[in-house]
Design a protein around this nucleic acid. Structure first.
Lengths: 147, 147
DNA sequence: CTCTTTTTGCAAATGATTTGCAAGAAGAAT
DNA sequence: ATTCTTCTTGCAAATCATTTGCAAAAAGAG
């Protein structure tokens, strides 16, 4: 929990006029330090041990979700993953790539998702989400070792 | 459970060399008759009452998933939705549209999803999934009534 | 510093999905 | 058709992520 993250966390709460409490700051700092979406459990584990209850973690994530400070996605299984909404445009999130080999998920911030073509008339799209599945660069090169 | 669906269901099981059992046929018929992805619970409810155990429904769906006869997606909440893989190409499913108003999800079979642009080098994409959220034509026109 | 309103911790509840296990079908072999 | 072996099912109980009730504790206003 660096000083820089802490300040950013406070700023995020201020912007939404939310009280600055210990659990909220802890959770935001964890998310600020993360480089991929995390589950509630993972967030709980990364918080200063036992300083925040798990129920509070989930409750807080729901709050942050309502204030659009974090976004969530179901990446692989039925477990929800959370990440800061930083890199998301109002109408769509960056795509998520999940590796079938190592199971890791990465956010592809720089990738561009073109609009869906040939949409039937009458649908108003407010939000888009793209999930990619495959083999990550890491796992692809690893195979070469023993062939 | 029409005769036509029953035949199609048997055919699907044959193709994967799976035993034709009562629960499997029932479940496939439900999915063949559905026009949108269904949850395990919904499938259970639509089956001839009490003829199949709920655990069997889930177990069977997992089996069909492994044989690529059905696909699944998390559409709104943590609940899994299942549908026949019929309309899916090997590398991607049709997009799903979920209405924020009525909550219904529809499959947009005719929509075209362009490939993601500017993907970082080294990623091998095997599967794509697109989720759209917004207002459906039905809910959009409904608003005009009382304004 | 007091007071009012939110939040939190703790424990227990939920609810979708899984799993263990013995009884019951499917399909192959006889 | 009957037997046999293997795969499936039903039932009940277990999981596990997530929620919820409630009284105690903290935040921020006055």
């Amino acid at each position: 929990m660096t000083e820089e993250h802490l300040q950013k966390a406070e700023q995020l709460l201020e912007q939404s006029r939310l009280r600055k409490t210990r659990p909220r700051l802890e959770i935001l700092c964890v998310l600020l330090a993360a480089d991929s979406p995390l589950t509630g459990e993972q967030i709980f584990d990364r918080i200063t041990p036992a300083s925040v209850d798990k129920a509070t973690v989930y409750r807080t994530l729901l709050l942050l979700l309502r204030h659009d400070i974090v976004h969530h996605a179901y990446l692989r299984n039925r477990i929800r993953h959370f990440e800061l909404a930083h890199h998301c445009k109002p109408d769509h999130c960056h795509p998520h790539f999940t590796c079938r080999d190592c199971g890791r998920t990465v956010c592809l911030y720089q990738a561009v998702v073109p609009a869906v073509q040939n949409l039937p008339a009458g649908y108003l799209v407010l939000h888009r989400q793209t999930r990619l599945e495959g083999i990550c660069p890491n796992c692809r090169t690893e195979g070469f070792g023993d062939e």
